[in-house]
Each structure stands twice: as C-alpha cells, then as structure tokens.
Design a protein around this nucleic acid. Structure first.
Lengths: 131, 131, 131, 131
DNA sequence: GTGGTCTAGACCACC
DNA sequence: GTGGTCTAGACCACG
C-alpha cells in the first residue's frame, strides 16, 4: 500500500503515518500478515527522517497493530477480522467520538447529516474490504 | 454548566475546556446567550492558570462559538439552532471523522457497532436538547 | 441624529459612539453647530453607563470635533467644510489606511475592487452631504 | 523581510507584527512560500518576548496567512494571487473601511484627497508586486 | 532548534 | 470586576 502524507500539515508526520496505516486496515487494503515498507525505505519515499517513521510505527506496535522485527520489518498483526476490541478501548474511543460528534452538532450539522456522513464513511471502508 | 477536565490527560487543558463547552452546546446544556464562568473564576475552580482558560475561550471565540466582552464575560453565541455550518467545515470535519472511524474498524469494532455507538451519542445529545 | 451601537460588539462602546458621530459628520447628518444629546441622555437611551458616553465624547473633544460645555452640552465644532486637516493628521491617517488597504489586497481583493469599494463609500457620504 | 514595530504605540505589539506581515504580502515583498523569522528569532530582533511574536503569528495562522510548523518555522501561505476573499470578509472589511474613510472626511479631507490617497497606497502595493 | 503548552505575575483598558 | 496585553521562564513534542 502506498502511504501518502502532507509534509506541511498541522497533524504530526508520525501520526499521519499511523492514520494512513489504520485507514488502510479499515478499508481492506491491508490485512493481518501484510508487510509494510521498512522504516528507512518509507522515510526515503516520503522524504522525511526515519526516526519519524519509526515513531509512527511504534505507536502502532504499542497498539498491537504492527509487529516490528529485525527480520521481516513491519508486519500488520490485526485487521477487522481479528476479533472485537477490548472493552476499555471502546470506552476510550467513545469519548473521542463524542467530542468530534459534538463539534459537528454544535456547528449546526443535523443529527441526520452527522449519522449519514458516518454511515457513508464506514460503508466506504466495507466496500473496499471485500474485493 | 460545570466544566471538568483531566489535569494529566495528553489532551491540552485549553482544548479540554473547548471540548467540554462544545459538548455542552451539543447536548443542550448550553444555549446561545448563556454565560460561562469568567476566565479567572474557571481557572480558580479548575486549579489551573487563567491564561490557559483564556486560550481555550479564545479558540471558541475564533470559531464564533463564544463572545468575550469585558462587560458580560464569556457568552455563548452559537448552538445547534444557529444555522448550518459552512461547506468547508463539513469537509474538514469528515476528514477528522474518517480517521477516528477507521481506528474503530481497524481495532475490530463492526460497522454496526460503530454506527450504533454514533447514533447513541447523537441521540443522547438530542435528548438533552429538548427538555 | 440617532446614535446606535452594538452592546456586544468587540469594538469598545465609547469608540462606537465616536465612530457614529464621525460618520454622521462625514455623511452630512451632522454639521458644525449641531447639538448632540447630553451624556446622561445618550447613556440612558443606549442603556449604558454615562461615563462611557463621556469617554466617547471626550475623545472627540481632544480631536477638536466636539465642544463640551456645561451650558449647551455637546456641540459639533467641525464638519467637512471646516477646512483641511493638519498635515500630521494626514500622515497618521495614511498609516492607518495603509494597514486596512493592505489587509484587503493580501486577502485577495483586486486593486479595482478595493478602490471601487472606497469610492462607493465616500460617494455615499457625499450624497448625504448635500440634501 | 525586515519587520519593524513601535514599542510605545497604542497598537498592540502582536498586531503590529500582524500588520507588517500583511503589508509585506500586499506590496509584494512577501509571497506564498516565503519564510519568516522564527518566533524566538524575531522576538530577539525586536527586543520583545517570544510569546508576543507567537500571538501575532497565531492570528495570521487563524487567518490562513501563515503556516507554523515545528520543522520549517513560519511560512507564508497566501498572497494576492491566492484567489478572491470570502464574501463575508468583504462585508466586514467594508465596515472597517467606512469608519476610517469617514474619519478622513470629517476631518476635512476632500473626497478627491481621500480617493487619491487610497489610489496611491494601492498603486504602491501593485508597483512592488511585480518587480 | 522549532513551535506548543503551561505557569506566574504584572499592568492596562473597559465598564 | 472583566478581559487584554506583555513579560519571564519552564518543560514538552516534533523533526
């Protein structure tokens, strides 16, 4: 999977890497067992420091999404079929979701608009998930 | 409305203040015209510096959510009935939503789980909104 | 002339009073010799503290636009026919104008748009000036 | 571009910084992509606190005029060729312009004087804009 | 080394 | 009493 980032975004580079990998897993372009580019390779491709890639991969490893080995490089260890998340994850996630959903509502999006948008996004994931 | 924050969160304090106010607006505890505590008062209540509260309020003012006057202090100027958001807001919001929804899917939440959770959250907003 | 202000503007109340009087002079609704409401009267009409009105009038007095007497109240002492401004005024004014014109240009308004807008504004003044 | 401010002006320092940058963009000394001094560097040059520079830069970022990154520092993201402003900007701008133009007229500048001065200022911008 | 966040304390402008 | 501005110094996050 090709990872693209915005060098001049306000989102930290390492987090953009994290976000792109997670989105790749969500929409089915990445599955458990797939390999990602080595840190140095990806850093070279993106034109950034390999420490930055390293940090991005590391946050995914801490999240049990990647396995990092000296031998095989970065390997995806989890995808939507790997079973349900831990309850504590769901709780934390709901807190983050609440904040972003509240933002939409407070700014004038209707309940329907918000839910429709969410449905479209996750449907887009599902569509790519079964190619 | 009582604002509570986590002093040891990785989310900046000023942004937590912002998030709590926005959530208050979304769930109907705050309406356009309502007053918020003064910066120094809230800072005192939360045990933090008033500059931090100031910054949180300031981000809300930039977003046309609060009005800060030397006379009346901080006053809410926007709520879900204040009209639809600008199209560019919706686009940016969708990008943020995609990241968080992808995170849930990648961590094993099913499409239905995610959408149900979203629906519950916004329904909870709506319930409080019409007391 | 009826003076109207926005109680919840980010522009200080005393300066709004000043701005409205100046606009009244510019567009011909106020002429040299005209009387303005007394500070207490205007304060009452606007629902604000008379000290605030006092301050607004005072800035106009410092600028030789108003004369404040115990007897006649506030009297306009200058209008567009009272002769040219002092050179130092023009220099200061040009500095302020440069800032606001630069803002328009930097934000994408064309030279023509800016000049046309300025012409319309001053023409509007002139139209009211000769009733 | 060299930024100069007046330490004893009644205009806040952070706003003077903002104004000088905007003027630099308007008159063509600054273009999209140009770098500005780092906050600490500029603060040191001007003999003021870096927080003050920070606030000035921050207002420009909110206005989509600057991009602040930890990597490249402060980079200009907008110039007169970046497209037209939003309609609501023009409306607000016209209000500000009216106040300052009325001030000139009320102080005795003729309609022609005012328009000529405006034309000279924006022409000066244009002249620098195409070197 | 860059900007970001937070604290602390001072003084001013406005009302 | 309110928010606004400025200074000063600390530590963190990012690259």
């Amino acid at each position: 999977m090709i990872i693209e980032i915005e060098l001049d975004s306000d989102v930290p580079l390492y987090q953009q890497i994290r976000d792109r990998v997670v989105e790749g897993i969500a929409d089915g372009r990445l599955h458990a067992g797939d390999s990602l580019p080595s840190t140095r390779q990806l850093a070279s491709d993106l034109g950034i420091n390999f420490h930055t890639v390293n940090k991005g991969y590391d946050t995914l490893r801490e999240d049990n999404v990647l396995r990092l080995t000296r031998k095989s490089g970065a390997v995806v260890t989890r995808d939507p079929t790997s079973g349900p998340p831990e309850p504590q994850y769901v709780v934390k996630w709901a807190g983050r979701a609440k904040t972003i959903l509240a933002d939409a509502i407070a700014h004038g999006m209707s309940t329907d608009d918000v839910l429709t948008a969410c449905r479209e996004i996750v449907t887009e994931f599902k569509r790519g998930d079964t190619p």
